[in-house]
Design a protein around this nucleic acid. Structure first.
Lengths: 223, 223
DNA sequence: AAATATTTTTAGACAAATCTAAAAATTTAA
DNA sequence: TTAAATTTTTAGATTTGTCTAAAAATATTT
């Protein structure tokens, strides 16, 4: 079954929301897609008809297995295209999102499989997020949200939970990128901001909101 | 101004039709796009409003300079993507058309310029057709339709005036590809078919219809 | 537990792109 | 040069995805 670009955007968004929350609400999807709640309800009916999600009026909803499989296929395409744009076409990592949002809707299994091979079957995209394989399997990464990372332990930024260019330019300003070494030096209860050390040198303050989007991998003591 | 995929398909089709005929008719566009004449009329009104074509009711129409510039931009994207698919992702030249039809509608100047550079600013696509540069200029090729090619002169297949997979598989069956050497050996008035010699060896019969789609470049006597 | 606030759904409308059927204009042919 | 055939346009529907405004259901608060 082929899906429209609009359907795919809903599927992808619902998938990402239900990773955190289990059940998803109409309003949360509307906010994420910057559309009205009424539009979301309309689309939910369609996706229910296509048997991609479990949904009952007023009760919330979530993707079923078929829906999750579809979402992983879209995420696979998105992350492979981002990898292509950064690694091959030399885009900067904060410039790729908008274009990848378009490319992810191109319909051709042959295309995406050839692209995957050409890129060397990468496991992670330039933001550090795992790329599902053609069966929908993703490598598991023991990554922890920065807000939950222990004090004074050196870790490595391995994923960024958003691709908004506002956020990416903020990170750029703070000299934070995928692979940067980071340690939490202090926690300020007043505004929940934290002070971190980047690459064992630079001390930087990070807001609670920003920290919620940064994922860190504990570094191998060997390295 | 960004255009919808539907608008772009009309613009591209009208451009190709007016190359041969100057003025274009509603029916010819409807046939080319496999849609109804009524739909074409609807779209013409829209494209006129956007000042892309010269059109008066019942009088035929053609793209103005703005329309032609837009068409060349779409053709540029299509041919660059075809080059990418064949040269980089190792698609066969008769498999790329459908995917390129989708990719040509991706909106990003940065993307297409980076792609152009990555491919080495190619002048011709895998079908032998010239690729417009970012200003809309195309290299000129002294190519002649096979039906007008003189007898017993060796030429080289340099372009194929259609990408229908029906036609491309027929060519493949006859062992004809871009770069094949070809000479016209005999002309049969009865059905306007011609007998050609491929690569100085194989004698093959070609229908009038097929011949109309093959373009040949006179070979340099030196090579 | 009743009143209030929030969330969700319905109802009705709109724009884009398409269709069929019928009317209007043009072209061809007798 | 009328009549017939063809082409083109209009009129009215349909589908997809969206919207606003109002109604219905659920959740919260006093």
């Amino acid at each position: 079954m082929p899906f429209t670009a609009a359907e795919e955007n809903y599927i992808k968004t619902i998938f990402q929301l239900q990773l955190n929350e289990g059940m998803v609400s109409t309003n949360s999807v509307a906010t994420a897609l910057e559309t009205s709640a009424a539009s979301v309800t309309d689309m939910l009916k369609k996706l229910k008809l296509k048997k991609l999600l479990v949904y009952e009026k007023y009760k919330g909803f979530k993707l079923n297995n078929e829906g999750k499989k579809t979402a992983l296929g879209i995420i696979r395409k998105h992350r492979l295209w981002e990898t292509f744009l950064v690694n091959i076409l030399h885009f900067k990592w904060d410039e790729v999102h908008e274009v990848a949002e378009q490319l992810e809707h191109i319909q051709s299994n042959q295309l995406i499989d050839h692209l995957d091979d050409f890129l060397g079957n990468p496991q992670f995209d330039p933001h550090g997020d795992p790329i599902p394989d053609s069966a929908g399997k993703m490598p598991i990464l023991s990554q922890i949200n920065l807000t939950k990372f222990p004090l004074h332990v050196v870790g490595e930024i391995c994923s960024v939970g958003s691709q908004s260019s506002d956020m990416l330019s903020l990170l750029s300003h703070k000299h934070i990128e995928i692979g940067s070494k980071i340690s939490v030096e202090q926690y300020f209860a007043f505004d929940e901001s934290i002070e971190v050390k980047i690459n064992n040198k630079l001390l930087v303050n990070i807001s609670a909101k920003l920290a919620q989007h940064l994922y860190v991998k504990k570094m191998n003591y060997a390295s």
